[in-house]
């Protein structure tokens, strides 16, 4: 297959073994990947694991949250064995609450105007530059867009975000919240166009139980399978993937 072989430093491995195998080594460096799922599907865990794994091999990262206060985020993460507090303390992984930033800038934290949003984007980029991060997470793009008033503003914002991210050298995961069991990738229907990749965290029903699933829907510049995997989240290993057994349901 004429897929360009990317050398190791052009790939950003997620540290989730089965996913990296699926990706042929990792996410092409500099990509923007949408991590889609309903609430509780493991988006935040997956993103954090990606940052921590990067930090463990010396790649600095930043996690921008806009949905959860930091203490809640760290409390949830402390249960996982992959989570290493020292990496946060040493600044290898930076957790930043975007609401505090907007508050400090004098923005209304619940409602953004076009100017607010682009000011925030500038700050986001400046922070990423200042910290010299290789890995960036925004959790969630849905919550960010929710603060904009009209569909036009959201459109504009997403495209601006896309071009800002493209100009940065870091590999970005954006989480996107969708209602459960809806096969859409984003709330506003356009987030997927600015992303180079889409990971879909869903579930299937089996005998009344919900089995977590993972699907790599798209990844530009990587040959990958689109088959669904079963996903497990455990405190010991965080997110893990396994081939999904075919049930007839």
């Amino acid at each position: 297959m004429p897929i360009t072989e990317l050398s190791k430093n052009e790939l950003c491995d997620t540290g989730i073994e089965e996913l990296d195998v699926m990706l042929g080594g990792g996410i092409p460096t500099g990509s923007t990947v949408l991590v889609v799922g309903s609430s509780g599907s493991g988006k935040t865990t997956l993103c954090m694991q990606y940052l921590i794994n990067g930090a463990k091999k010396g790649e600095r990262g930043v996690f921008f949250t806009i949905t959860e206060p930091l203490f809640k985020l760290t409390k949830n993460m402390e249960g996982f064995e992959f989570y290493d507090k020292k990496l946060i303390e040493s600044g290898m992984v930076n957790l930043i609450d975007l609401r505090i930033i907007s508050e400090r800038l004098g923005l209304d934290t619940e409602k953004y105007t076009v100017e607010d949003a682009s000011a925030l984007l500038d700050i986001l980029r400046d922070i990423a530059d200042e910290l010299n991060v290789k890995r960036l997470v925004i959790d969630s793009i849905t919550a960010l867009c929710y603060r904009l008033q009209t569909p036009e503003m959201i459109r504009d914002f997403i495209f601006k975000l896309g071009s800002s991210l493209a100009a940065m050298k870091c590999t970005t995961l954006l989480t996107s919240e969708v209602p459960p069991r809806k096969f859409q990738y984003s709330q506003y229907g356009i987030e997927e166009f600015i992303s180079d990749g889409i990971m879909f965290l869903g579930d299937i029903e089996r005998k009344g139980d919900l089995i977590r699933t993972f699907q790599l829907v798209k990844m530009r510049g990587a040959a990958h399978s689109r088959t669904k995997s079963a996903m497990s989240i455990s405190t010991k290993n965080g997110v893990e993937l396994a081939p999904l057994l075919k049930s007839r349901e």
Partner: peptide, 19 residues
């Protein structure tokens, strides 16, 4: 002991064994 939420989560059972 590792606990798996339900005997229907076969993939997870498989993962835990290998782990």
């Amino acid at each position: 002991c590792i606990f798996v939420e339900s005997p229907t989560m076969l993939e997870k059972i498989g993962l835990e064994i290998i782990n």
